[in-house]
Computed example of a mutant assay.
Amino acid sequence: MNLTHSPGDRRSALLVIDMQYDFMPGGALAVADGDALVPLINRLGRQFARVIVTQDWHPAGHISFADSHPGHVPFQTITLPYGPQTLWPVHCVQGSDGAQLHEALELPHAQLILRKGCNPAIDSYSAFLEADRTTRTGLSGYLREHGIETLYVVGLALDFCVAWSAQDAAREGFNTYVIEDACRAIDLNGSLQAAWQAMGELGVQRIQSQQLQHA
């Protein structure tokens, strides 16, 4: 595969999604094997001149929490004013230990840490748009102002925040690659297969980390 821009090209960036303790084994919304990604993401990060990190950052009582909806339990789907919403266990509450980035994540040259899900009334999987699909995070403008044209996306969880971010990146016109072995999925009711299909339809490329070794 010919990559649009190699990792060392300043027109490309590594987008690291939600490598936080609540998504690690033992966390409130654990993704199996999530902590195993840290060494690989650190190695990938050293290949990139530009790195951006996202951090789920919910206020207490967030609308996406099952506890905020009496009579409901985690992983149910309800309809909110902006559309369907999967209800989650309480996770990544602002300032909590579970919301912190994994301490072994070594990306000292990351230029931006983007916090999302801060609006108490709207969830936000994507690094570009909140779940109402109109409220922007500002990431698209940041990338354009810095001359970035190609994104390589890694992190957690593949079938939710990674997939939504990758799809929105493609919609915004960025060349978008998801590094499959640098992600892990929740796979809730077929969500992983659906995510790959949706990403593919938008032209998101599925690659492995070894394809970047000699890029």
Rank of each mutant, 00 (worst) to 15 (best):
A32V: 02
A110S: 10
A99M: 11
V73H: 07
A110K: 02
Y82E: 12
D18S: 09
S68D: 08
G27I: 10
W196K: 14
W57N: 07
Q197N: 14
A194T: 07
R43M: 12
C161F: 04
T176E: 07
W164C: 12
F75M: 15
A170M: 00
D168C: 06
A127M: 03
G8T: 05
Q111D: 06
E149P: 09
G71T: 01
D18W: 02
V38S: 08
N189Q: 15
R184E: 02
G45P: 06
S6K: 14
I63C: 14
F128N: 05
E130T: 02
V16I: 15
V93L: 12
A32R: 13
F128K: 01
A104T: 14
V73K: 11
A194W: 04
G45D: 07
A99C: 14
F75Q: 13
R46L: 12
K116H: 06
L107N: 08
F128T: 08
E201H: 14
A60H: 11
R184W: 00
Q85L: 06
Q85W: 02
W88M: 07
Q76C: 07
G138E: 00
A170G: 01
L112Y: 00
E103Y: 13
D33R: 10
H109V: 03
R171D: 00
P74W: 09
H214F: 04
T77G: 07
L37Y: 06
D67M: 04
A194E: 11
A13M: 01
R171P: 07
R11V: 10
S68L: 09
L212W: 03
T150G: 05
Q210I: 13
P89M: 05
L202E: 15
A163H: 13
S12E: 01
S140W: 02
L188Y: 11
I63T: 06
I186H: 05
S165M: 11
S12K: 05
N42F: 04
L151C: 00
R136E: 15
A163N: 13
L158E: 15
G26Q: 09
P84N: 10
S96N: 01
I186E: 07
E172V: 07
A198F: 04
R115Y: 05
M199V: 11
A99F: 12
D123R: 04
R50E: 13
L14E: 11
P7C: 06
D123C: 03
T54F: 12
G71L: 12
D56K: 06
G117L: 02
D35Y: 04
R184S: 01
I186T: 12
R50Y: 06
Q100E: 15
N189Y: 10
I122P: 11
C118L: 15
H58P: 09
A30W: 08
V31S: 01
T79I: 06
L129A: 08
H58T: 08
S191Q: 04
E180H: 13
Q213M: 03
D123W: 00
A121N: 13
G34I: 07
V31T: 06
Y82C: 03
I179L: 01
I186D: 05
Q193A: 15
S96Q: 08
S209T: 03
R171V: 05
G190H: 07
Y21W: 15
R11S: 06
L212P: 14
L114E: 09
T150V: 03
